[in-house]
Amino acid sequence: MKRRTAILAGAAAAAAAAGYFAAASALGPSLRGVVREANAPYGRAAEEAPGWFARQWAGFSGGAAAARERDGLRAELDAARASLLELDALRAENAELRTALGLAASRPRLVPAEVLSEGGGAGWWRSIRLSRGRDAGIAPGCPVICPEGLVGRVVSATATTADVLLLCDAASQVACVVQGRAGGARGVLRGGGVSRPDSGLDLLHVVEPLAADYLGKDLELRPGDRVLTSGLGDVYPAGIPVGVVTSVAPDSTHLFQRAEVAPFADFASLRLVFALVPPAPEEAGQ
């Protein structure tokens, strides 16, 4: 009798656990959306507060410096406007040529977004949370860049937030090309994550540089060579600057070369980034 009760209790507990995990998996994305969007305004306020105080302080203390900066910015704006005219002409020419060749538009839209927080709520991955999400067209898989170069890719998105896995995370992989003097060497760039010390304090983890693997051994590569996305794999468009080679050595198999790469983006000070969103259907049809 006791055995039957125990079996029934065990079965009931197993069914309850299965039901719980099934319900949690089904409701998880909705819960995530609600919680992250409820938390987003605090992030926006925290992001905007330092800038607001800095502007107020600059207004009080730095009138002359602000005027000089304004004049410099005006000059830059004029130059940018001139470039824009040239770009408009090139864009029109590009659209005409694409139409003539029967190609669909492939130029992604740049969606600016502010960085709300780093590491999400738990900090397991090297990631950032952005202030814009699905409402702005950002979806999982979208590449994210900053003015210096590639930042990472979107791994999850709610209506108004998006999580980006940074290039430097150990789980990140990018198809890349190293621009050597004699030509480009294709490879796979991995985030370094943290070192795995054999001994010593576990706290003393060092963030490792990025590593480009499977580079052809016959190509001459040197420190200082630029690394760009290769466009293979359909995740990142070709030609986005990623970093610069700091060292090159044969890998453990001696069949390929392995390069250490310093990224152009400064992941510690990211504030404003741009998500590359696929063109809208009407744009693509042009």
């Binding site: 995990f21 949690a24 819960l31 609600v34 919680v35 397991w124 991955w125």
Partner: peptide, 17 residues
Amino acid sequence: GAVENGLGPVPGGVPLL
């Protein structure tokens, strides 16, 4: 637990449990 679950990447309702 629900908020921790929503903020982090951990799947399956584990933080809530």
